[in-house]
């Protein structure tokens, strides 16, 4: 069974999984070192704020290393990122990263409309007319539900002066 499973491991998947777990190992190492150097560990009888984090980070680091070195674990559930996926996600990341600032500057209504329009046109490559109609409809629905019905207190956009 195990031998059969090993023969089905795709080398590209294994490489991808190992790169991912190498990054996680680096992060877990930094976290563990950070926990032991920046926080007070205390003793089991008097555990300080770093005690819990230290224990959990060490356990996590050990598990990540196990996943890194064991090919069957490293490859399990791996789904490689294709060029098309990477390109689409790369287009989405700047918009998503800017969204918190846009909400403050433009308010909910304009930000929602812009995000929807961008997502329709650039990410899902929808036709322009449908994108405009879709973005307008979604924005109207959001405004009606969240602002008009639920009265969620969204702030006024500092540039637009509207919610």
């Amino acid at each position: 069974m195990a031998a059969a499973a090993d023969t089905t491991v795709d080398p590209a998947d294994l490489r991808f999984g190992r790169i991912g777990f190498a990054v996680l190992t680096a992060l877990a190492t930094v976290t563990t070192i950070g926990a032991f150097t920046t926080l007070d560990f205390g003793t089991p009888a008097r555990p300080a704020p770093g005690f819990w984090i230290g224990c959990v980070s060490v356990a996590t680091l050990m598990l990540v290393v196990v996943a890194l070195v064991n090919p069957r674990i490293a490859v399990d559930g791996v789904s490689r990122i294709t060029r098309a996926d990477a390109a689409a996600v790369a287009l989405a990341v700047p918009l998503l990263a800017l969204t918190p600032s846009l909400l403050t500057l433009l308010g909910l209504t304009v930000t929602t409309a812009l995000v929807c329009l961008y997502w329709f046109l650039v990410i899902t490559r929808t036709r322009p007319l449908f994108s405009v109609i879709g973005a307008g409809a979604i924005t109207a629905g959001i405004v009606i539900i969240f602002i008009e019905l639920l009265h969620v207190p969204f702030p006024l956009g500092t540039l637009t002066g509207i919610r």
Partner: peptide, 30 residues
């Protein structure tokens, strides 16, 4: 799916903001 994905992104942004009324939670969500 294109409509549903766009609608979901919009709801996620608004929903994240609604939690505590700050844009920090939107950043955490992203």
């Amino acid at each position: 799916p294109a409509v549903m994905a766009t609608l979901t992104v919009a709801i996620l942004i608004v929903g994240a903001y609604s939690i505590n009324g700050n844009t920090f939670d939107v950043g955490v969500m992203v």
